[in-house]
Design a protein around this nucleic acid. Sequence first.
RNA 1: UGGGGCGUCGUCAAGCGGUAAGACACAGGAUUUUGGUUCCUGCAUUCGGAGGUUCGAAUCCUCCCGCCCCAG
Length: 357
Amino acid sequence: MDNSESTFKKKVLVAMSGGVDSSVAALMLKEAGYSITGVTMCLGIRQDEDRASCCGGDAIEDAKRVCGQLEVPHFVFDFAPLMEERVIRKFMEEYLEGRTPNPCIDCNRYLKFDALLSRARGMGFDYLATGHYARIEREDHHWRLLKPKDRNKDQTYFLYPIKKEDLPHILFPLGDMKKEDVRARAHSAGLHVAQKAESQDICFVPQGNYRRLFEERNLTSLPGDIVDLSGKILGRHTGIISYTIGQRGGLGISAKKPLYVLRFDAAKNRVIVGGKEDLFAAGLIAGDLNLLADEFPDEVEAKIRYRKKPAHCTVKKEDGKLRVTFQEAQESITPGQAVVFYAEDEVLGGGVIDESF
RNA sequence: UGGGGCGUCGUCAAGCGGUAAGACACAGGAUUUUGGUUCCUGCAUUCGGAGGUUCGAAUCCUCCCGCCCCAG
């Protein structure tokens, strides 16, 4: 991190979830001499015990306590209506259309790096900081979003929706740290969140069962047939929302080889299944783009899901969309999920997968 | 009711006298700031039922029950 005096007294709003990462992010900035203020977004989510949450109720208490230890102010912003509108509702609409949403990306896109960021700017803060593992670097007048030092925790896949013009106003203090360093740092600073578990599962879904959300809102997904590629009926599904492409479990069909969800036939309310070999596709079309780089090299790398090695591909622009062709066929390309482009460490941008081909 | 065949885990299926493989499904766990994938573990004291032969049977014999096929 830049430790020069130019950072002195710069005002930073730190988005704090109550977890180790954002707590240490705040700690690092404080020690670097920034004037920091913590903020936790209240997302209107019920808190279940034993659930590590990125945004729930006692998350606020944990964040407040850390801010107390750091002797910095802490605010809570009510983002519940926005969360409901832009993340949760979209999440359900996507599933009902046979797509697989990525709510964590939408949370970054609409809440953290849009609403929260502009609010921070409006309040006179120079920067918004989060505990994400990613780096932002300046090169002349060009700002780049980069993979973090800890490749194992690389979260850039979730960050591609950040607008290019916002990069100069965002700080990722953990970009050069390893996860174990972060925990050690939290421990030595006496932060009570040092041993807190990694967040997992969708924060607004109780007990990992997102189907309950649909029930609570009286949204139904009708049962239908499960068929193979030839159209032969193999079984019944409980509603299209319970499946995603590449899914193996939950089909309840006994066959010679394991069966995977290949795609959906929305018109017939069918789930089409086949062998693992049928899961591979040569490319995809992506829309809803956010490009961070002005130019794409001829050949780039793309990630079609979190925690997967980027794959070599070529990208062509086609009326507002990108046509991505992979060097090697990719498994389980899933509409609704993000595709994020890289050139070495740099995030070039990304989009939402419309279809595979 | 003349002849033939078959009944082993939820499903498919090895075993053919020596003390129940495997696959799929399912369950639990690990991994993970989405979903899924993947990995690990578990999963028939029992072989349609009842007797009998044998040191010992799912495997041999008898009867019964239930399916399937070919003849009428």
